[in-house]
């Protein structure tokens, strides 16, 4: 077999090589040209974290917020559904969409996609990265950091002071009460232990987190056997309003009938937006848990 006239193929091959060499030599750089001077306080803030959404809406007027996350108006997870509906844009962590909004401050969290954060950093738009939300103190720090970055430090301090006052109030009221053994249990058998806000929220609400006895750090899957051995006297699950699927499942599970919380019917649902929040709404979650754990201290008529 003979082949004729494949020279153009060599040109293409050569072209490929040249392209690759050019890629080798070329070093991408920052954009040159006049930067618009940074605006302070920022007027087009974009948040890429639900916690930042909740905090922002408490600190900044809506006209200064260009976009929130797509979760902000989702009633299953958000505490700020109504307020968030007034903000025109909802975004995901997608660098193009974020930049298209011409933000002057982007707030991301430790959980935000690392590659997207790296891309956004190269564009020179101010970026505030919130730390891990692993404790109530970290939540407070994040509130103060956002306040600082958007020029609303006073409001942020006031918000933190309000949080601390209400937490202190709950702690005082439950201080004398016996501390029940509590387990927060989520779908799939995941429980939260040391280094989580849930652990601190249970402690603040006057309970003992039994996940600590099992040596759980952060989130871990717990087997049913382990759950029976741990034998918590209260089980907390999170759920959407009106849907108590997980609670019913646990109560009906024949394998768990010896667990004290199941036997006594002390399996309680806390609204999911409370259970998953890492903004100032942790206070509401602590109050909700305290009412569940210590109904004697919080009469059912009391509403705040």
């Amino acid at each position: 077999m003979r082949f004729h006239g494949v020279r153009p193929a060599r040109w293409v091959g050569g072209g490929l090589i040249i392209l690759l060499v050019a890629g080798f030599v070329y070093r991408p750089h920052r954009l040159r040209g006049d930067l618009t001077p940074p605006v302070f306080p920022p007027q087009r803030i974009v948040s890429l974290s639900l916690a930042a959404d909740e905090i922002l809406l408490a600190l900044a007027p809506p006209e200064r917020i260009a976009a929130l996350t797509y979760l902000a108006d989702d009633p299953r997870v958000s505490n700020v559904v109504a307020e968030a509906r007034r903000i025109p844009h909802k975004v995901r962590a997608n660098a193009e969409y974020v930049l298209a909004l011409q933000p002057d401050l982007i707030i991301v969290s430790a959980y935000t996609n690392a590659a997207v954060k790296a891309l956004l950093r190269t564009t020179g738009v101010p970026l505030l990265e919130l730390g891990q939300f692993a404790s109530l103190a970290a939540v407070e720090q994040n509130i103060l950091a956002i306040g600082q970055a958007i020029g609303e430090a006073d409001k942020a301090h006031a918000l933190v002071a309000m949080m601390q006052r209400r937490l202190q109030e709950v702690r005082q009221r439950v201080a004398a009460a016996p501390r029940p053994r509590v387990l927060y249990y989520s779908a799939g058998g995941f429980v939260l232990g040391k280094g989580t806000t849930m652990d601190e929220m249970i402690a603040s609400a006057g309970g003992r987190n039994v996940a600590l006895e099992a040596g759980v750090e952060r989130a871990k899957k717990l087997s049913q056997e382990r759950l029976v051995v741990l034998n918590p006297s209260v089980i907390l699950v999170s759920g959407e309003e009106g849907q108590e699927g997980l609670r019913e499942l646990l109560l009906a599970d024949p394998a768990l009938q010896e667990v004290e919380a199941i036997r006594t019917g002390r399996v309680h649902t806390i609204p999911r937006p409370y259970a998953s929040t890492v903004s100032q709404y942790v206070v509401k979650c602590v109050e909700a848990i305290a009412k569940i754990l210590h109904p004697e201290v919080f009469p059912p008529m009391e509403e705040r």
């Binding site: 040159r32 040209g33 193009e96 930049l99 891309l119 020179g124 738009v125």
Partner: peptide
């Protein structure tokens, strides 16, 4: 972007999208 020529400030956002995000 590639040649490193200066970019007008009103085009910066577009240039960042095209040169720093989309093209790579």
């Amino acid at each position: 972007g590639i040649a490193g020529l200066p970019i007008d400030s009103e085009e910066r956002a577009q240039a960042a999208i095209v040169y720093l995000i989309r093209f790579p």
